[in-house]
Computed example of a mutant assay.
Amino acid sequence: MLAIVRGKVPAADLRTVRPLAEEGIAAIEVSLTTADALTVIRQARAGLGPDALLGAGTVRSATDAARAVDAGASYLVTPALVDGLETYGIPVLMGALTPTEIETALARGADAIKLFPGILGGPGYLRALRDPFPEVPFVPVGGVGAQAARDYLDRGAVAVGVGSPLVGDAADGGDLDRLCARAAMFRKVAAGETP
Rank of each mutant, 00 (worst) to 15 (best):
A3F: 12
A3R: 12
R6T: 05
G7C: 11
P10M: 08
A12R: 06
L14K: 04
L20T: 09
A26G: 13
A26M: 13
A27Q: 06
A27D: 05
I28R: 00
L32R: 03
T34C: 08
A37T: 10
T39H: 14
T39F: 12
V40F: 12
R42W: 01
Q43Y: 05
G47F: 10
G47E: 15
G49S: 05
D51T: 11
A52W: 13
L53D: 11
A56D: 02
G57N: 03
V59T: 12
S61N: 06
T63Y: 14
D70E: 15
D70V: 09
G72I: 03
A73V: 03
S74Y: 03
Y75Q: 02
T78F: 01
L81A: 01
L81I: 02
L81Q: 00
D83Y: 01
D83I: 01
D83K: 03
P91L: 07
V92E: 01
V92Y: 01
M94G: 00
A96Q: 02
P99T: 01
P99A: 01
E101G: 01
E103T: 14
T104E: 03
A107P: 00
A107N: 02
D111P: 07
L115I: 07
F116H: 06
P117H: 08
I119V: 15
G122N: 13
Y125C: 09
A128Y: 00
A128T: 02
F133T: 08
P137Y: 14
F138T: 04
V139H: 03
P140L: 13
G143W: 11
A149G: 15
A149I: 15
R150A: 15
D151R: 07
D151V: 06
D151H: 06
Y152S: 10
D154H: 06
R155G: 09
V158W: 14
V160H: 10
V160C: 14
G161P: 13
G163H: 11
S164A: 13
G168T: 06
G168Q: 05
D177R: 07
D177E: 08
L179S: 04
A181R: 09
A183Y: 04
R187M: 05
V189C: 12
A190C: 11
A191V: 05
T194G: 10
